[in-house]
């Protein structure tokens, strides 16, 4: 640098020292815009998150304080709500309901992942008679409102003798009944070039080996999303268990929460809120654990120039 003392003068540094009037104005405007944007987003964000914050705060309040003070911060924080809520008014603790929820969710999620992969692989990669009509019916189920099928489904499962078992909750999903997930995996698969699968076939892999060793690993981000959604939606599903489960010992968390409202004469709101907080926890935990893969997308493509 020292050898060329005249060089730096031509670079932008000279101008940077003395910004023009216009530049100052533009910069001020940009800063103002940014401030406005962030304030707005923060305010909206707070409004959206406030009920959740209130819920958590209120779960540590006493039942008496619940409606007497509007703030979310408990005056005399107590975990009595958690202790009493956990015991429930039934012969079972809340732990039982959590286990029930898991017992519904885990087979359902696995079944969904497996069946969606198989069906999507078939649709995305193979030609077979009737493919167009079958695919159209998958899409049609996607557009069909859930309510429409409730009653026929109920009658069907009643005739099969499946009422008050978990089967009506598991089986439709394990048979790729969730058209949305099938569609999602198909779209994902369509974006993956077939070369890798063809290379595997040349390497001697049969269809199943190609699926397991090549396609499934490449589908992982999509499958993780599928599992994540299925987990959260099932955890929060109220109607399904309400319709098909009648004995309390099979109730999942979503029904158990309602149970505490039904059976108590004076609602123990603090208990209900405490259990609601617990009911949120698994979904949140799973979401944050899977977030990395969920967002990652497919950055591992084999194509590179």
């Amino acid at each position: 640098m020292a050898a060329f003392p005249d060089l730096p003068k031509h670079s932008g540094s000279g101008e940077r020292d003395a910004p023009t009037q216009l530049e100052i104005k533009l910069r001020r405007k940009a800063r103002f815009n940014a401030a406005l944007r962030y304030t707005l987003l923060t305010v909206v964000g707070l409004i959206m998150v406030y009920p959740l914050v209130w819920l958590i705060g209120a779960s540590f309040k006493t039942n008496a304080e619940m409606f007497s003070s509007p703030g979310f911060w408990p005056k005399n924080p107590t975990i009595q709500g958690y202790i009493d809520g956990w015991q429930t008014s039934t012969p079972y603790t809340f732990g039982r309901f959590f286990l029930n929820s898991l017992w519904i969710i885990i087979p359902k999620t696995i079944g969904t992942a497996v069946s969606c992969t198989l069906v999507a692989y078939g649709f995305a990669r193979f030609e077979f008679p009737g493919k167009k009509i079958l695919f159209a019916s998958v899409i049609a189920t996607l557009l069909l409102p859930n309510v429409v099928t409730r009653i026929p489904q109920y009658l069907l499962f009643r005739d099969l003798g499946w009422l008050n078992t978990f089967l009506p909750l598991w089986v439709p999903s394990a048979l790729a009944g969730d058209a949305f997930f099938v569609f999602m995996v198909i779209q994902f698969l369509r974006a993956i070039p077939r070369d890798m699968e063809e290379a595997a076939r040349v390497d001697g892999a049969n269809t199943l080996q190609t699926l397991v060793f090549i396609v499934v690993p490449m589908l992982m981000p999509a499958l993780i999303s599928v599992c994540l959604f299925q987990f959260m939606w099932t955890m929060n599903d109220f109607l399904g268990p309400l319709i098909y489960l009648s004995s309390v010992d099979k109730y999942p968390v979503s029904l158990a929460l309602k149970l505490s409202i039904d059976t108590t004469e004076a609602f123990a709101w603090n208990q209900i809120l405490a259990m609601s907080v617990l009911a949120l926890a698994p979904s949140l935990a799973v979401f944050f654990l899977a977030q990395k893969y969920f967002i990652e997308g497919i950055s591992t493509g084999g194509v590179k120039g």
Partner: peptide, 10 residues
Amino acid sequence: VFQNYALYPH
């Protein structure tokens, strides 16, 4: 041998 190499990405 494929044009896009078709290596198994994972």
